[in-house]
Simulated assay, not measured.
Amino acid sequence: MTDYSHVDPADLDTEFSLTVDAADAGKRLDAVLAANLEALSRNRIQALIKSGDVTVGGAKIVEPKYRVNEGDALTLTLPEPEDPEPMGEDIPLAVVFEDEHLIVIDKPAGLVVHPGAGNWTGTLVNALIHHCGDSLSGIGGVRRPGIVHRIDKDTSGLLVVAKTDQAHSGLAAQFADHGRTGPLERAYLALVWGAPASLKGTIDANLARSHTNRQKIAVVKTAGRRAITHWQVKERFSHAGEPALASLMECRLETGRTHQIRVHMAHIGHPLIGDSDYGSGFKTKANRLEEPLKGLVANFGRQALHAGLLVFEHPVSGKTLRFESQTPPDFENLLSALRNF
């Protein structure tokens, strides 16, 4: 049998064999396979062991923590990837970068990332299944794109998606680390009501599901999950000498919680323009605006938030990749109106 030690993902066959050497003797079965099969995540290997796809000396072993001995012949058989439950759909995509391991998309506002209640079709996942086809190598045993981070339906901007199990594992580790030890960066541009007194700051406030509305997120004093947002004012927009009407802010995430920027900005009294969930209290202020700004704000139809910067380490090559996205036309039109108000 072919020895696939430290195999390249592109060359991975349906069967992998390995003879345990002295250095690996006494180690866990899943650990030995994971160390020699970089194309598969350890979670995936554990699942394959439990499903009976691994033998030791010809005997099926279904316990990942089984301790191997020197000279043991290990064989892992990869089942054919299952077809994904979501169907592929021919939805146009703005592809910023793509190789055999991953794809970077500039997502338009209005596109849901993942199928779910009320959105089983017409999502980014449906589009990627159609676009990528057989280049999706079977993440977790299913031929599907690996979503490692999401942006809200009505937020525009950059998103990276894994096409292979190895890329999924590497990207997931980076996003879990939040850039503390690697090059990961995520920056958003936001148009918010009002202006903070200072030009920059940090919000460190735990987030959890709201007790009054489970569809919303709220800042909580105890429990919840820690959430940190670093912000900087890029521009302030005022009118006739009055206090700042609105601001253009850059928000950088140190964590990545659901609705984090939207909730944090509302928490400090500067909710996003157009955010009906967390900035509805500013509708009265919007109604007092003069045209054409009043009409633009009223018809904006989404939170004014754009994921404009994404930096990460390629999970296979190790190269640092940097991508920037221009704000879309609706955002630019609103920005221009604020500057000329």
Results as ranks from 00 to 15, higher is better:
Ala167Ser: 02
Val54Trp: 01
Arg262Glu: 05
Thr222Leu: 12
Gln166Asp: 11
Leu289Pro: 02
Arg144Glu: 01
Val142Gly: 06
Leu253Val: 03
Asp204Gly: 07
Phe175Gln: 01
Leu111Tyr: 00
Leu93Met: 03
Arg262His: 04
Gly57Asn: 14
Gly274Asn: 01
Glu291Met: 10
Glu291His: 08
Arg28Lys: 15
Thr155His: 08
Pro84Gly: 01
Val161Phe: 04
Gly318Tyr: 06
Leu29Glu: 02
Val104Asn: 05
Met249Gly: 09
Gly58Ile: 01
Val68Tyr: 00
Ile228Tyr: 01
Leu207His: 03
Leu207Asp: 05
Ala10Arg: 14
Tyr4Leu: 14
Gly224Lys: 03
Ala172Pro: 00
Gly52Cys: 09
Gly118Asn: 04
Ala10Gln: 12
Thr19His: 07
His149Pro: 03
Arg339Glu: 11
Leu305Thr: 09
Cys132Met: 00
Gln46His: 01
Val62Thr: 15
His130Asn: 15
Ala307Thr: 02
Pro271Phe: 01
Leu12His: 03
Leu338Asn: 06
Thr2Asn: 09
Leu40Ser: 06
Leu335Met: 09
Val62Asp: 10
Tyr4Trp: 10
Leu289Asn: 01
Ser135Trp: 07
Arg257Ser: 03
Leu310Asp: 06
Asn213Tyr: 10
Phe16Leu: 09
Phe16Pro: 05
Leu40Val: 05
Ser41His: 07
Lys234Ser: 13
Val311Gln: 09
Arg225Asp: 09
Ala47Gln: 14
Thr258Tyr: 09
Gly138Asn: 04
Gly138Cys: 01
Leu305Tyr: 03
Asp165Ile: 07
Val96Pro: 06
Lys294Ile: 11
Phe97Tyr: 15
Val220Ile: 02
Asp165Pro: 10
Pro271Thr: 08
Lys60Cys: 10
Asp21Leu: 12
Met87Gln: 14
Pro86Tyr: 05
Ser17Thr: 15
Ile268Thr: 06
Leu321Lys: 13
Ser156Thr: 08
Leu171Asp: 05
Gly118Ser: 12
Ala176Glu: 13
Thr222Ser: 14
Ala117Lys: 13
Leu40His: 13
Val311Phe: 00
Ala176Asp: 12
Met265Pro: 04
Thr2Trp: 10
His168Tyr: 15
Ala223Phe: 10
Leu76Ile: 07
Ala25Pro: 03
Phe282Tyr: 13
Val125Lys: 06
Lys216Met: 14
Gly141Tyr: 03
Arg180Tyr: 07
Phe237Arg: 06
Arg44Cys: 14
Ala172Cys: 08
Ser198Lys: 13
Glu85Tyr: 11
Leu102Gln: 08
Lys221Ile: 10
Asp3Gly: 11
Arg302Ile: 11
Asp152Arg: 03
Ala205Trp: 04
Ala94Lys: 13
Ala208Cys: 12
Glu324Ala: 15
